[in-house]
Amino acid sequence: KLETFPLDVLVNTAAEDLPRGVDPSRKENHLSDEDFKAVFGMTRSAFANLPLWKQQNLKKEKGLF
């Protein structure tokens, strides 16, 4: 399991300012399950079932792209 970080560490943070080991294209993977659901309004599995373009739009909207 990946290390999780608080939302404010990941949202609207440039790649070079992210904690070590965080993939800038997969910031959402480093949210706790609770934060993930609070941000996206759905579970990880529901998010994973969305088309890629919709996932990317949601990530942009939430500052996690």
Rank of each mutant, 00 (worst) to 15 (best):
L50A: 01
A15D: 15
K54Q: 14
L52C: 15
Q55M: 04
V22A: 04
L64D: 02
G21Y: 07
P19E: 04
D8H: 15
A48T: 10
P19S: 03
Q56N: 14
F65W: 14
S25H: 15
R26H: 15
Q55G: 00
L52F: 13
L2P: 14
F36G: 00
K1T: 12
L7C: 07
F36L: 01
N29M: 15
R44D: 00
D33S: 06
D17P: 05
A48Y: 15
V11S: 07
P24A: 10
G41T: 04
F47K: 00
A38I: 12
P51L: 01
F40N: 00
D8Y: 09
L64Q: 02
V22Y: 03
L52Q: 10
H30V: 03
W53S: 09
D33Y: 05
P24G: 06
E34W: 08
D8F: 10
K59M: 05
D8Q: 11
E34C: 07
H30D: 03
Q55Y: 01
N49G: 12
V11G: 03
F36T: 00
E28K: 01
P19C: 06
D33C: 06
L58M: 12
D33T: 06
L58T: 02
A15E: 14
L10K: 02
V11K: 10
A38E: 13
K1F: 12
E3M: 11
G63L: 06
G63W: 03
R20W: 11
V9K: 09
E28A: 02
K59Q: 03
A46G: 07
L58S: 02
T4W: 12
V9F: 15
D8S: 14
A38K: 12
L18S: 04
M42E: 00
E16I: 12
W53K: 08
K60L: 11
A15Y: 11
K1E: 11
L7N: 03
F40T: 00
N57L: 14
L2N: 10
G21P: 05
L64S: 02
L58N: 01
T43Q: 07
E34I: 10
E3H: 10
A38W: 12
S25Y: 14
K59I: 06
L58R: 02
K37M: 15
D35Q: 06
Q56I: 15
V11L: 13
G63D: 06
L58P: 00
G21C: 10
L2H: 13
P6Y: 02
K27P: 07
P24Q: 07
T4I: 15
E16A: 12
E16L: 07
K60W: 11
